[in-house]
């Protein structure tokens, strides 16, 4: 286990050390203490390593992540796991605005609530929020799955392209071109798998599915689910 104290050492050194890890590294377990809300902790990782952050983080934690598992034992500031490509990011507390924005792949789990614009412009990432999400979540979402075990705020899925939105609680309002859709067996399977991987005991049958009415963008059949 490599332990790194962000109060004693620089963020740049930490990220450089994490970037230096390769696919066959032996240093697979990292612990970051005293994050104190710093920005850009563990961004741009590209190795199968596990990073435990012991506290709350500021802007852009675990952005652009590939392969790595980043686990924040606290809350995360704006833009956590922004543009994630693969791997797993778990936030034990809450996440601020635009969590998982533009993410292409991987799994983002938020055990608390996510605020506004969660999954904005998501492009293939899977996001599971144990609590609620704020307004304009999944705005212009293109692909991937957003699972909300609590409630969704105003304008869910506004201007959505193709992405699956699953909400267990209430939806304050749906955004333009976002509608409720039928839950078919294949959707329940996707949901069951995501909930299990995200450590949620919610039942897939309790959720409703929302998606694109496909009236707002120039629909191409290749995009269809």
């Amino acid at each position: 286990m490599q332990t790194y104290d962000l109060q004693a050492n620089s963020l740049r050194e930490l990220n450089a050390a994490l970037h230096a890890q390769t696919a066959d590294t032996n240093q697979t377990a990292w612990e970051i203490v005293n994050p104190r809300g710093s920005h850009a902790i563990a961004v741009g990782l590209d190795a199968p390593i596990e990073v435990e952050v012991k506290g709350s983080t500021g802007y852009y934690c675990a952005g652009m992540n590939k392969q790595a598992t980043v686990h924040v034992h606290g809350s995360a500031g704006p833009g956590v796991a922004e543009n994630m490509m693969s791997g797993t990011v778990v936030i034990e507390g809450d996440a601020s605005q635009y969590a998982g924005a533009t993410g292409h792949g991987g799994l983002l789990v938020i055990k608390g609530n996510a605020s506004s614009r969660c999954g904005i412009s998501m492009k293939g990432i899977d996001i599971v929020v144990h609590g609620n999400v704020g307004h304009m979540s999944a705005f212009m979402a293109q692909s991937g799955n957003l699972v909300v075990c609590g409630d969704a705020g105003d304008a869910l899925g506004d201007s959505i392209y193709e992405a699956r939105l699953f909400v267990r609680g209430s939806v304050k309002s749906l955004g333009a071109d976002c509608i409720e859709k039928e839950m078919r067996p294949e959707h329940l399977d996707i949901l069951r798998d995501l909930l299990e991987r995200a450590g949620s005991d919610a039942k897939p049958e309790e959720f409703k599915r929302y998606g694109s009415a496909r009236q707002l963008y120039n629909f191409k059949v290749d995009n269809a689910y």
Binding site: G37, G58, G77, S96, Q97, S116, H135
Partner: peptide, 24 residues
């Protein structure tokens, strides 16, 4: 609400910060 805001409350105070960093 695109400008950031974090609040913290204890028995001793209520605090506001643009970022959590300000409260640590």
């Amino acid at each position: 609400a695109c400008k950031p805001a974090v609040m913290a409350e204890t028995d001793q105070y209520v605090a506001f910060g643009s970022e959590y960093r300000a409260l640590v």
